[in-house]
């Protein structure tokens, strides 16, 4: 128990880094995902191709490779990012692609009649998206987004490869130093706790949107 209390502070500070990556990735990639999803179904073909290529690239290569590429690869051609910036950029780029695909599916599920009704009511395209389409899309995509959000909590452990001190790294260091399983078990418990919280929050959100069908 005494040992647990000794290593908890370093684990918590690692968890802080994990949470920072988690929240900042979500803050940027969710709105960007919505924007890209509209671009993916745009009638302007070059934009559509470009974004499709981007999504293919991001989903077609490992996130771990993308992290390494941004932090260790780009400096070779003269583009150097600070550690945290590199990690955040890679995560945002990667998750935006997944979110965009999820939102695109949601957009397609909206009946064309909704757009037509809005049009004859003289709403602008922007008003139609904001008041009618996006609220309905959010309800549809919430379960899939939840899945990705939970993945993100765990994926954030990949930053460890570029030397950021996240939760997994803190646990791994303690295990290597003290030759005991306890830190890794604690790390697992903290991840479980975080994901449990996420699950609860997502359930609440789904409940909030259950006022209509």
């Amino acid at each position: 128990m005494k040992y647990v209390m000794e290593i908890l502070p370093s684990l918590f500070s690692g968890a802080g880094m994990t949470l920072q990556i988690f929240f900042e990735t979500l803050i940027f990639s969710l709105p960007l995902g919505i924007l890209v999803s509209f671009g993916l179904s745009s009638r302007f073909a070059p934009l559509k191709w470009l974004l499709n290529f981007y999504v293919w690239l991001m989903r077609g290569t490992p996130l771990l490779l993308q992290l390494i590429f941004v932090f260790y690869g780009l400096p070779i051609v003269g583009l150097t990012f600070p550690r945290y910036m590199a990690a955040l950029a890679a995560f945002v780029l990667n998750y935006t692609a997944y979110f965009a695909e999820i939102f695109r599916g949601g957009n397609q599920a909206i009946d064309r009649g909704q757009f037509e009704a809005a049009k004859v009511l003289q709403l602008t395209y922007g008003q139609t998206l904001r008041k009618i389409v996006i609220p309905q899309v959010i309800k549809i995509v919430l379960p899939s987004i939840g899945n990705e959000v939970i993945n993100l909590v765990k994926d954030s452990s990949l930053v460890y490869v570029i030397g950021l001190g996240d939760l997994l790294r803190a646990g791994n260091l303690a295990t290597a130093r003290d030759v005991t399983l306890v830190p890794l078990v604690l790390v697992a418990l903290i991840y479980l706790l975080l994901i449990g919280l996420c699950t609860l929050l997502l359930r609440q959100l789904e409940k909030h949107y259950s006022y209509y069908r």
Binding site: D111, Q114, E116, A117, V120, P135
Partner: peptide, 11 residues
């Protein structure tokens, strides 16, 4: 316009 299937906004 009153559409055939009404197209009310469900939300």
């Amino acid at each position: 316009v009153v559409f055939q299937d009404f197209n009310l906004f469900p939300n």
